[in-house]
Each structure stands twice: as C-alpha cells, then as structure tokens.
Design a protein around this nucleic acid. Sequence first.
RNA 1: GCCCAGGUGGUGGAACUGGUAGACACGCAGGACUUAAAAUCCUGUGACUUUUAUCGGUCGUACGGGUUCGAUUCCCGUCCUGGGUACCA
Length: 927
Amino acid sequence: MDYNFREIEQKAIEKWKAENVYKVEYPSTKPKFYVLDMFPYPSGAGLHVGHPLGYIASDIFSRYKKLKGFNVLHPMGFDSFGLPAEQYAIQTGQHPAKTTVDNIKRYKEQLSKIGFSFDWEREVSTADASYYKWTQWIFCQLFEHWYDKTADKAKEIKELIAIFEQEGNLNVAAACGDNTNKFTAPEWTSFSEMEKSDMLMQYRLAYQADSWVNWCEGLGTVLANDEVKDGFSERGGFPVEKKKMSQWFLRITAYAQRLLIGLETLDWSDSMKEMQRNWIGKSIGAMVKFEIKNHSGFVEVFTTRIDTIFGVSFMVIAPEHELVDLISTSEYKEEIKAYQKYCNTRTDTDRQSDVKNVTGQFLGAYAINPFNGVEVPIFIADYVLIGYGTGAVMAVPSGDQRDFLFAKKFNLPIIPILDTQISIETEANPTKEGKYINSDFIDGLEFKAATNKLIEALEIKKIGYGKVNFRMRDAGFSRQRYWGEPFPIFYENGIPKLLELKDLPLELPEVISYKPAGSGESPLSTATKWVNELGDGKTRETDTMPAFAGSSWYFLRYMDAQNDNEFVSVAAQQYWQDVDLYIGGTEHAVGHLLYSRFWHKFFYDKGLVSTEEPFKKLVNQGMIQGRSLLTKENQIKGISGGLNVPINLADNKDRLFKDKLVYLSKNDNRFENIDVEKDVNWEENENGQFILLQNEVEKMSKSKYNVVNPDDIINEFGADCFRMFEMFLGPIEQHKPWDTQGIGGVSRFIGKLWRLFNFDENGNAHFSTTKGDDEAYKILHKTIKKVTEDIERFSFNTAVSAFMICVNDLSKFKLQDKNILSDLVLLMAPFAPFTTEFLWEKLGNDVCILKQGNWPIFNESFLVENLINYPISFNGKVRAKLDLDAALSENEIEKIVLENENVIKILDGKAPKKVIVVKGRIVNVVI
RNA sequence: GCCCAGGUGGUGGAACUGGUAGACACGCAGGACUUAAAAUCCUGUGACUUUUAUCGGUCGUACGGGUUCGAUUCCCGUCCUGGGUACCA
C-alpha cells in the first residue's frame, strides 16, 4: 500500500471529530498549560504560508504537553477590527462586518486543513458585539479608576471624590495631568459640575485631553505617521498638517514603573525586554526653570544632565510650544510663522531622523541661566517635539551632538565643561568622566557629586527639583474611524458620562458612507439618529477605539469565551492563570505586548485576575518572506524600476518575455501606458525579446504578487509534509525566504517512514513483536533524547532532522521492532498528526494518540559508549583522531596521546609546550 | 536618526555552556534498476593546492582588530539586511 495523504487526512479528521479530541477539559484535575498564538487579522488576501509558522510551532508544543499529561488550552480567534476592512468598505461600499465574516470563514477553512488542535468552541472575534461588550466594559472600568501612587495601585474614582470632599487634592499622590491645580475641600464643593468633571479627567485612567494629530484636510481625516510622506498623504497626495484635537487617552504612564520591574519576572528574550525598557525609557534627572528676560514666564526643561548646566549656550523649544507667541519679539514674527508652518508639515519621525538638515529660528527672546545669570537666546527647532517631556531643552553643544550641530549652524558658543572633553571643535563629547571646568561652584567635582550638589541647589532656590522621567507617553485611544468599538460614552451638557453595563454592548450604527465625516469627526457622527437617540440633548461619543483595544485582553476571554455575565469568570481565570507560552512576531514588541501587560496589571489591582503578568514565556517567530521579481531601472521608459511582476509570468531564469508584458499591460494598471514596441529596452535570444527581472526577498503581500497559499502546498504534498517542512526551514525565530524547492526532501522522508511499516497490498503493516537489535534501541533513544530536548528549547528544525537521521538509520533493518515503531510514532505525533494517527491505529491502538498515548521515556543505558573518538588538535587545529577508553583520566589520555605514532610524526621532534585535555571532548597540543 | 535582531558552502540551515565548522536537507554531477520515464536506491559535492592515485597542506563562519591553549560562539570598531519608532496589524 502506498502513502496516500488524502485518505489518511480524511480518516484522521473523522476520528478526531468522533472522539471530540480537541475539546478542552474544564473543570479538570490535571495540571494546566496555556499555549497562545498571536491571533491574526483576517485580511482579504487569505492566509499565506507565513501565518502558520508560529501556529505549527505552538501546535507541536501543545500536542507534546498533552502527551506529557497536561490539560492544554490552545485556542484561536481573530483580531477583526482594523483599517484594511474599513478601507475596503470605503472602496466597495460593502459592510466591513460582512467582509470580515467572509474572511474569517476562509481563514478557518485554511487553518482546519493544517490539522491544528484548536478548540473552536472557544473562538473569539474582537468585532463581535458579544466580545466588544466586554472591551467597552473594561473601558468603563478604566474611566472609573485613578492611580494611587501611595498604595501603588488603581482605585475607584468615588474614593477620590471622597478625599476631595474631605481635604481637596492637597495631599493626594496620584498619577495625574502635569498642570493639575491644587484645591481645598471647600473649593471642590464650590466647583460646578463641569469643573468637577474637568478636574476628575486629570485623574481618570481613561481620560480626554487635547493632542496634536496628523490632519489631512483633503481626505478629511487623521492619518498615522506611516500614511504621511514628506508632508503629504500617501493616498491621494494631499497636504498634511499638525492639528490639535480632543482625544481619549489611557494613563499607561501610571504603570510605567511596574511595567519596567515586571519585566524581570518574565521568561522573554533579553532583546524583547530591552525594547520594552527603552520604550518605557526611565531616566533620572531634574526639572529646571529658566526665567525669561523682560517677561514674567519661564521655560521649564527636564534634563538628565543637570551637571552640564554651565555649558548651556542656548535654549530650544518645540515650534508648537505655547510660549512661542508670548515671548517672541515682533521683528522675527514672520520668520517664526514661516518656520512653524514648515514644521507643521513634518511628522515626528521625520523631525527626529533628519539630523543632516539643521534648521531652527531665533525668537528674539533670552532665557536666564538660574545658576550664573548668563542670558542665552531661545530658539524653536523641529528636533524638539512638543509631546516629549516639557517640549523644551537646555542646549549644551559641548556634550550633545545635535546641540553641537545647531550651535555650529547658528554661531553659538560651545563651552567645554569637563577637563576630559577634547577636540570639541569637531564634535560633541558626551562624557561623564573627569572634573568640571567653567562651572562655577561645581568646578573640580566629578559627575555624581556635581549632580547631587546641583539638585540640592535647585531645591533650595526653588527653581527645580530632582525627577524621574519616563519617555513613554499615555496611549492615544481615539480613532476617527468606523470599524472599531464605539465608546460607551455619552455627553450631557458637554460632560462625558458612562453607559451602564446593562446598556452594553453599544453596537456600531449603520452609516451611509464609511468615509470620514470630513470635519475631523468620525464616520459615526453622520449616524445622527444613533448619536441623539438617548434624548434630552444627550449625544453619543462618535470616536471609536483603536485596534489594540480588543487585542489587549483576548487571552483572558479564551479562558471563558462564552460567558455572558462576566468578561471572564473568577473560577476559570484561577484555573488557567496566565499564558505559559506565547508565540508571535517581534513587530508587537512594544505595542500589543505593553498594552496587554498594562491592562492585566489594572485587572490585577481590581482583583479580577490572580496573576500580575499575562505572558510568562514568549517566543518570537520570524517572518517568512516571499521571493518577488521586479523590473530594473531603465528597462521600461516612464517606469522608474522596482515594479513587482507576477512570478508565474517569468521563466525560470527570471526573464519576462514580450507576450507576457503585453498581458500585464492589459491587466495591471501600473503597466497600462506602456508601448511594448517603443518604451521597452528589450534583450533578445532565440525565443524572442525579453527583459531580465531582478530577484528580491520581501514581506509577503498581495500587491507584490509573491504570496504563497498553504492550500496549494497541502494539495500537492499533504498537511503533515507542509507542517514538517515549515519547521525544517530553519529556527522558528529567524526570518527566512519561502522556497518550496526543499519540500521534496521532507516528502521523501515521510515516504521512508512509511516504508518502515512494510505495508502489504491489503494495507497490513508488518513488524516484529520480539525485542529487536540493541543498535535499533540506541537509535531510538538517541532520538527520544534529542527530540525531547529540541522541543523544550523550541528548536523544531533540528528535531525534524533528528527524525530524518533516525529513519535513515532504522531503514537498514529489514523488519522493525513494534516497540520502536510505537515510540517513534509518538515522538512524531506532534509534528505529523495525520500520518501518525493512521500508523498508531495500524500498530493496534483503537483510541486516538492524544487520548491514549504517553510521551516516550528516555533510557540512558542504551546510549553508554565505551570508546570516545577524541580529536587531537595542535594549536587549535585538528590534525589527528584517536579512539580512547571513556574511563581514562586526563593524565592517562595525555600520556597515550604523546606516545601515539601520528602525534610524534606531527610533533616532528619538537617538545609540546603544553597539553590540554578536555575529558570526553578534545585534546589540544600546544607547540 | 534612535532602539532591537540577523549576516556560516551554489541554497535552507547545524554546531545547545569557548572545544572536530558545514549535521540534516535542497540543488548539482556520476552510477544502479527500467525498453523508456517516473519513483526508489548508491556515490561524490566549501575554496584553493599537492599527488599517477592515495596520504596530505593552506585558507575559510559579512569586514577590520582584540582576548584565549583554542573563537561561528566573548570584547571593540565598520559595513549591509530586516523589525519597531506611538493612528498598519
């Protein structure tokens, strides 16, 4: 009987269905294990071969853990709110809910073919009202809480109101807005309802504030930085400018310190933790006030280098800073306006990355150094961002390269402040070594002493104070989009108020057009009936939540996916606790993974979950890239090169022939204006005219014509081969290009495995039931050891090659030992579930592997070696080998080696300086 | 720009804690079986060099330095590629 994967897959699917094998046990007395994949966004392009990489890895681990006796939760769902669906809706008029449901259906069909052990009864989809009901409820909880710095946890707003009524906010240590005024209890009582609401906004964990956004008048909407290119929208090419708008925010900064220290408890890669640390960006420094000459105000700056304050030769504030209009003098008004206009068109990313173009504008005003009274000019410059710190910096050109370049450009003094700063004529020297010079009362001191003395002086003079600052900002939570969760908020007399739980979910209204309203308001604002349906002049909030809202807590919902009364029940959460293994890409390093940790800590404060961190272990999978073919420069007139061409149109030498280009010019509008006779720089051979395309490895995407669909691979080679091939490609965490050329090797391997069973034409396997060769057992146990270790360290590619070695080695025996075949089938079950299920039955088992099987136990006694093949190296180069008794001591080995004929020959009469023996590994003779 | 990761044969990759660089595959070349093809199996395969053939030798893990008896692995510097950079998910 030949290997027929179609039949085998069909049989296995029926068996699993009949035994309901993937239904998660709950309640259960077994130890739990929670394996989670980052759920996909169901895009219109369908699943490509990159998606399953992580899912296969997590599925292997889940099945392995099940065989080891754990109760495993391994769910799947869909992150179904997002811009692409909305963009598609705008273009086609189709409701995003419809396309989303269609896409999910397609994803599920594709996923089901790969043989994942998902329990689909626990599926979640963030765009389902039954799910986003709880996302909205969580928002309500955040709105109703503030952060008590003394208790270091979130508390209910009503407790804060009680404190305000008792003693105002004079003694409250809370995470709050920067300019929160102090008030007493009587003052609080005298506040209007609006004033009270505004004051509480300064404290809520979900709050409203003004912020700068990329506004595109032409599109009538707010854009992400990556949708803006050189001051124009990427779509349509309309001008983009900065605009101040009222937005919802989440006060993630309240949790900055806990998010930082929590990292220490996690089993994540150091690089991943480092990225989060850098994003949180804790810095210890000082706030300093600089008075302004002939003006009552002051410039406040945060600096981590207060020790350099005597090197300050100018100040720079952000072009959007509110002081600009107040302190600038009339003679510069026009230049300032022009410069602000220029900055207004640039994104924050552009403003920070462009270090070659130094620009700025003098305001005509001067700040006064609080320590030595020196007057320094105040500039605006685009490298200072309004959203960072105070939006102002004290510039020290001798120590900071950006300040240095600025000083050079505007001919400002560069004052050395440390005796170790040399050659500061050519570049800044940010050193902290040495003793201070030109620095008044800290002259001669070193960094630490100087810093302490200056902070003390600041606090005595009441012009500043030592401060811990975080680079991380509060999370913007408003989107002026249609396809997101509506806020459970309505306004009464301009005051935002919450809906009650019984009124949730607040479902998205139908709208005529998914386009933005154009006024800066979201498309929801056009649903006037919905907006006003509460009556009494009450209006609904029309912004929607961002995509990270739904994904910040979905891992909890899987624990209790169908609960209508709670977001997750206490009992379910206490059993499943947290995610033991989370697999996903590094692109979520600081977005999703930080927001989820923040929400989880908030739930922990509320007593809603029993763990402080959601994801114990994190494994990052790399991206599978596609091979694409692109046109080259000067090949086609009027086309600048780099246009993607479908791979199947080119021949195997990457040549695109004339008839194919004609086809393309009719079917792809990027090519439609080409005159194939005149515009193309053809090369020619006996088959006709062609252009030679260039090969490139890129991210898989529909528009690049390089998407590979797993369905095609599965149809040709079977699901098990696909699974093993994806794992065999390389380490899970590495990026790698997709190349099906190697798949034949895996397919042949499965064939060899099949042949070990000696199937006859009636489909009966033939094996021996008496104990076989010791050597066969050695092969098996070597494999048990290797595969178990490899799975534990997520090295699936080497596990697959261990199987190949095992099957190759066993192939030399005519008839296999049944026990060996059984253990091999069990070892391979996580990797190739369909084939192994079939073989398991052929070995005489009735119940499926996951219910009946146990992970094989490694027995060291089969692996004992009496001889060790020692490499003998000379100065680190291996030049001889020697089989030696494993029991020999270092001294005995050295003696035997030096007496060896070959060694004597290589030594050629020279006496070795030293002999290093590493027992069981290597001998190194130093000449 | 800043933060993080990666760079090993023609290709994907292995070498887990500093101890035989290239496991396992792909591709390629040659051979067996076959009327032929497919399938399967066997042999060889980093580069250079020596030799009738062996036995050997030299170089070699992006590049330039360093530490070490010994470096793909640790340290310093450079180049290139990928991810993130706060409204793509």
